[in-house]
Design a protein around this nucleic acid. Sequence first.
DNA 1: ACAAAAGTGTTGTAGATACACCCATGT
DNA 2: ACATGGGTGTATCTACAACACTTTTGT
Lengths: 230, 230
Amino acid sequence: MLTVDAVVFGYTKEKGISVLLVKRKYPPFQGKWALPGGFVDEGESLEDAVARELKEETGIEVGYMEQLYTFGKPDRDPRKHIVAVAYFALVRPETVTLVADTDAEEAAWFPVEGLQDLAFDHDAILQMAIERVRNKLTYEPIGFELLEEKFPFSDLEHLYTSLIALETGENLPKFMERRNFKKKFMSLGILEELDDYLHYPGSGRPARLYRFNEKAYYAYKKRKGMGFEL
Amino acid sequence: MLTVDAVVFGYTKEKGISVLLVKRKYPPFQGKWALPGGFVDEGESLEDAVARELKEETGIEVGYMEQLYTFGKPDRDPRKHIVAVAYFALVRPETVTLVADTDAEEAAWFPVEGLQDLAFDHDAILQMAIERVRNKLTYEPIGFELLEEKFPFSDLEHLYTSLIALETGENLPKFMERRNFKKKFMSLGILEELDDYLHYPGSGRPARLYRFNEKAYYAYKKRKGMGFEL
DNA sequence: ACAAAAGTGTTGTAGATACACCCATGT
DNA sequence: ACATGGGTGTATCTACAACACTTTTGT
């Protein structure tokens, strides 16, 4: 008995990092919120299974996905021994519309901060996913998968700040100091400085927009060893 | 259908990094070398399953083990769709004696350098394990799991050098320069300098012995963020 | 003029790099 | 005495850390 579960992260300036959950329609854990997921079909690859379940239960397709860990404790499911291969994924919440479907009553975004009491061992899975994304953020440019194509630098900064602050107990590493962070990031040469500006009405100076330059990143990877090591 | 496979690494000064393989007794891939592993029993945790299979097929018990990745491509086993959860493990080859048993004709150590043509997708699994251990080595002190309790510093150096050189194409990172590597490692304060010396007859000055100090490492972790970031 | 966010430059310092010679043993 | 591996110190340089004021907009 093999299942796949997905920890899908989204980000908005207002609500910070959120995770996509579905409300369980049937026992066990009926009525509880859980990670989307389900059984792997015979002859179906794990990645296909995750994509399919996500589509079925929430209606979304993700941009970036990666295997997280496999959870196999015999008692993680009260019915019987069911092994779950967990994935984490990143999407731009703007670009997706949630639909509830057959197996799940509802699908919705929840800010991850202090989230708990999920079905099965999904609390632990979520925790691990957060940890993983947070680490990964500092050595691979996956943050852009959560931002719009063009974004003000402050979005990037805010994304990093809030994700790294989660569970780090609020004391940010030194490289997150505003001026240093920008200097460092810019020096990588993987951000394109656009001639577009964005102004949220109601406040502050308009912000210049940036875009992630994938080609430049490959060049960087070739030049340096790998990753980008913030 | 769920299996577990183990990539068990060992290290000796003479042969460098080796991996433990078993020769398959039955089809498919009869007579080929493969990673030890087998089916997970109902109600058995994945870790238990790996430990059990290792014991059965090779007779060894490992010191350090960690989940690597789960391989689920439908065609990875020619018979049917079988998903494999792979683990990697580190042992001191000195401390174990291999025995061949029921499912496997023989068990033996093979230097990983250029190893290929294993059964199933085990080439890929091995590759991934090497990659993982190599990376991990630079941010967690797992190297000691491969060395004797007391070891000359040159062993540590040689271990790092050979593991990092694998597939890095021989050009070592700068921190591996002898004097700098030792300076750096010592500055971490996690190595105990012993008053023992070891002298291989036949050559050179006797080498001072060192011991990994786990307590000091915990203290270090508490002090610094985590890991040790060579 | 004031509030709110964007934007920016310099200096000190610690850690990384680069480099070449002496030491203790066995034969 | 020579071969073999063990062992070390210092100068330079680069990258991280610390720090506070100015700019542009809306109200």
